[in-house]
Design a binder for these strands. Structure first.
Lengths: 271, 271
DNA sequence: TCAATAATAGACTATAAATTCCATTTTTTC
DNA sequence: GAAAAAATGGAATTTATAGTCTATTATTGA
């Protein structure tokens, strides 16, 4: 195994990866993406594992290693094994460390939000009732068109769901109130409204829900707490309580629920 | 490969090591001493290497592993490898399988996303470098105006940051490409561009970054992995790797970083 | 010192992993 | 739209590595 001209340092490796990954055929690009996102795995995985992770055949992964300039996987792995600095402290130690260190520093802040996010996620699983999601999925999957509304702090959630539905060929429309245009007449019988709102609840959203319910159109709501004003309108309500830190919340749990709901609806429709 | 009763955690391993190493014959004691001092090497070494390090024969090292309660070296190594890649057991493939089977009630799907979100958050803490966030905060806090761009899947993140900045009275402008309006001339000297993009990278974002960098305006980037095209443009890049489900990710980690960054900038400015 | 016991080294075998090769499919080019 | 080139998947092959077995050496106690 003589020296082949592969990258000799992690830095050189990264540069080479960047340089090479410009135009790469499909499978090899998958390798590049997976490797970029999981560099740390190289040292402790087999080709087969890496290949599976990247969603390709082991032979494809081998070719990828060679394109990078190595003689094969083993040589590439050696680079990572040699520069491996293991013994990272575990999550809770790191968290503690970050929190203590320079209170108010950006990374201490990050640690707080990460912790809040984790707590929220845990809580989400505990509080969500399977049958309620099931109802929501059923309603949304049967809709001609899904109308999504969510303003201010809920707008990110609304826009992400709109994106997800679009990707899965589910007919959906985002009511974004751009230019104060009101599209409520686009909501027709057979459609469903998906309303997302958190305290303080936007009046626009509440109003839309109210007017739509009067016309007998089903509403699925993503909201917080059980006292949400949306409860009055007999909607299928999924409530998420997000742990907040300061005035802001990380939205981790909300988005998790949102994306799970979207994917469930998407697969239900095509299935 | 049946379950052998070896230590199941690093902690248990350490206890067992301590307990055992009281009275051990010469060679086995060498093993114990070497392992105690080089626990991190176990994950990336072969028996032969470990044995050489300890100054014993491979077979002696094997016996040592068995005394610790493992079936052999491989089993002991697995403990260290698994704990290194930390609760991130091949989510991409797990979720992939889940989708293929289209099996999975909505709540099972939710559980998967929650689990993926949790792992992503842990990983975020592990990979983010405090000094890079610090740089980003500094750049953003010193800007006259923060211009935010993030399209498609990144749009939720962009819009949430715009919302957060607004709430904290930080001058910020969201470039949303509504109506294909191009606002690039609004970006002036003294401003900073905050670009958010994830694979597949929107060409609009890349182009904007490129044109802005040519004018010498600083760019802070929120992106995934090191192969992101934004790397080329010498931006302050914060990379988050998030587990995805086909085209979707729960964005938990990304939003956590985004909100932490926003709040840090907000307090830095008013402080 | 001698027997009995335990420990060790080194060779041997089984196994798992890396790597290569080629038929098949996909993409490009004319 | 056909021919050429490139990319891919999967099986076959080779190599490296873990794990086992046994003869030899050290250690202990009488």
């Amino acid at each position: 195994m003589g020296e082949t001209g592969g990258p000799a340092t992690i830095k050189a490796f990264e540069e080479r990866l960047l340089e090479v990954s410009e135009d790469l055929p499909k499978r090899l690009r998958q390798c590049a993406d997976y490797v970029a996102a999981n560099k740390d795995r190289i040292a402790v995985s087999t080709v087969a594992e890496m290949a599976e992770g990247a969603g390709v055949q082991p032979s494809a992964f081998m070719r990828f290693c060679q394109i990078l300039g190595f003689s094969g996987f083993s040589e590439m792995q050696r680079l990572f094994r040699d520069s491996y600095v293991g013994g990272w402290p575990d999550y809770s130690t790191r968290l503690h460390h970050l929190r203590e260190k320079a209170e108010g520093s950006p990374s201490a802040l990050l640690a707080e939000f990460v912790e809040a996010g984790r707590a929220s996620l845990e809580n989400l699983l505990k509080t969500i009732e399977p049958q309620t999601i099931e109802q929501a999925v059923q309603a949304l999957a049967g809709a001609h068109m899904i109308h999504i509304i969510g303003l201010r702090r809920s707008f990110p959630v609304a826009s992400y769901m709109a994106y997800a539905f679009e990707k899965m060929d589910v007919p959906a429309m985002l009511h974004s109130a751009v230019g104060r245009l009101d599209n409520r007449n686009a909501i027709r019988s057979g459609d469903v409204l998906l309303a997302i709102t958190f305290s303080p609840y936007s009046s626009e959203t509440i109003e839309l829900v109210e007017s739509v319910r009067e016309r007998g159109i089903p509403v699925v709501a993503l909201t917080d707490t059980i006292v949400s004003p949306l409860r009055k309108f007999d909607a299928i309500a999924l409530s998420v309580s997000e742990v907040d830190f300061g005035a802001f919340r990380s939205l981790s749990a909300t988005l998790c629920l949102a994306i799970a709901l979207s994917v469930a609806v998407g697969t239900r429709r095509s299935g």
